[in-house]
Design a protein around this nucleic acid. Structure first.
Lengths: 350, 350
DNA sequence: CTGAAAGCGCTAACAC
DNA sequence: GTGTTAGCGCTTTCAG
């Protein structure tokens, strides 16, 4: 492939002049510029961006580490990140950890090798260990969706899982349910524990005893949603309602319920944290709490880019908590009222 | 960040020795290796992969250009590509064109600047123009899903759109429909024209006249699905069945039909090309033709990587055509029979 | 307004 | 088994 020198030679100028033309600096005589442009055209020259990164020590690339693009929640998040990055002339490298801590570790290392300018991370491990090198180097980092234990001083953009779970649980209680099962992801993931907290708060508030056998931690996956729903429904006094900790869990739950020959909501109520995109457009059935995910991606990226371009100015940590929205549909039974909270409201606790 | 020289200094060896250790070459005395490893550990040294790419003239990165990750079809394709790339130590840069030819052009240029080793492309333009530089440079390229006009000699992995559309249309005809509307993407996109061809073949075969007003070209989007469905249903003699050219179009169609106060399938039959993932798991309603998308991503990536590692050996062009599968559910009315064709069968016309 | 020289971090090729 | 040299393509000084 032609280099800047080939262009220089052809245009009978120095490489430096070509560089100036490419980067749109002024201080180049119009006719010289023309000559250079012509040579570039003729050669089909395309600048080598990583030779450039090499000398500039800046890649204009950010790493996005999530569990699985296949989950509509993360797909939308990724789109928010991608669009915002693009707008700011940044590229995105996407990494799927599948909630696997080892994969997370590997990808983080890969991103470091690639000298990405910053990272947006939805942690699968919930641990700060894998971030050692990144924190040591002071590489701009923004957490999304999930907190990390004992990690302060790092920007984070997330939904209010505790509140969302509280709302959803309270809704079920209002509908008359007393035995409510909940299935969430691993205990390492902050949304899982937060959602259980919100669930408990609603129960306590209603004077309903908390029963540990109704609380299931597993993986945020269709498989675990299926398996744990079956477990929940096979105990002596099974729940009359199930709280799917995320959209995938809820999908697994529907299948399990159907396989047991039961119906939603007639035999068992089912609600879900996070909407199930396309499903809800065609068949608005699930009562859910949703979060402004796309916005989450946008804000996280903006925060990150601000850090990157401005390493020192903003010293304080920023925590952005996005408000959830309860959407009442049919899957929990009789529609009480349109209990829709305002969403996209941003609380910025600096 | 520490460089290979910092490590060398600390370990009291040359940079070259460090390089050898990092890359696992033999010819390094075990105790020297130990010293180096220790220094790496102490410094938290992470190799700079693009300094490496720079000298090796190889980035181990491939570009994936699709229209929109948000579409479950492409999400799954992307996962297939990503997983296969990862397995082969390649990274993926994902680009969303949103079916916009200009964006396509820009991204292709960006990828070239990044000196990716190869490209997997679902063309939005259907034109070879934007590929000029790539073809000129002989950069490994594999088309997925969509053909490109006048472009021979390039590997392609795609579904059999013509056949799929034929099967779907024939199914509707078997159910008694005579006036069938079809909504597909832009005429530039080969799947759109192929699907219309299959649709026509089925009609002709059944002796049903083709009426151009029943054939709508637009964008493969929810918005156009909505808009064009309304148009179709407002002509003098509206169709009794609608063929959604892809999953997004079908979603738009459902909404339009609902907004018009009609029901599927009682008032109007609706079928779709490509399944609507999560929807079908929870609510298996849509009669569709599906394609083995994940496999498509896997095969495309394998083909591409083979080209990359082996630039000259395989000279012939490879065309892989994946078989579609008709899944009969409820959206077209009475279930005739489980007309499920075998999928994932690979026809390899070398 | 333009050019020459140096160097970013790494590895291939060749010496020792 | 290990070190030296040179160069990948570009931009940043600093001269002219």
């Amino acid at each position: 492939m032609p280099t800047i020198y080939d262009v220089a030679e052809r245009a009978r100028v120095s490489a430096m002049t070509v560089s100036r033309v490419i980067n749109g600096k002024r201080d180049v005589k119009p006719e010289t510029r023309e000559k250079v442009l012509k040579a570039i055209e003729e050669l089909g020259y395309v600048p080598n961006s990583f030779a450039r990164s090499f000398v500039l020590q800046k890649t204009s690339t950010i790493g996005l580490v999530i569990s699985d693009v296949t989950n509509p929640f993360f797909t939308t998040l990724a789109r928010g990140v991608e669009d915002t990055a693009m707008k700011n002339q940044f590229n995105v490298i996407l990494c799927n950890t599948d909630e696997d801590q080892e994969k997370e570790q590997i990808y983080l290392e890969v991103l470091l090798r690639k000298r990405i300018d910053g990272i947006i991370l939805a942690s699968a491990s919930g641990k700060k260990g894998p971030l050692k090198n990144i924190l040591m180097r002071n590489i701009p980092l923004v957490l999304v969706d999930r907190k990390i234990e004992y990690l302060d001083g790092v920007d984070i953009v997330r939904g209010d899982s505790e509140l969302g779970a509280y709302l959803l649980t309270k809704h079920l209680i209002n509908l008359g349910h007393r035995r409510i099962g909940i299935i969430v992801g691993s205990k390492n993931i902050s949304t899982a524990t937060d959602r259980v907290e919100g669930y408990k708060r609603a129960l306590v508030e209603a004077g309903i005893p908390i029963e540990e056998e109704l609380i299931k931690f597993g993986k945020y996956s269709k498989e675990d949603g299926y398996k744990l729903t079956k477990e929940l429904l096979s105990i002596k006094r099974p729940p009359t309602a199930i709280f799917g900790g995320n959209n995938f869990v809820a999908i697994g739950a529907v299948k399990a319920i159907r396989d047991l020959g039961l119906r939603v909501p007639e035999d068992i109520a089912l609600v879900s944290f996070d909407d199930i995109e396309t499903l809800s457009e065609v068949y608005p059935f699930f009562t859910v709490v949703t979060q402004p995910v796309y916005t989450m991606g946008v804000i996280a990226t903006e925060l990150l880019i601000r850090r990157i371009e401005n390493r020192d100015k903003i010293k304080e940590r920023r925590e952005v908590v996005l408000q959830p929205e309860l959407i009442v549909r049919e899957s929990a039974g009789e529609k009480l009222k349109e209990e829709v909270m305002e969403g996209e409201k941003v609380i910025d606790k600096v």
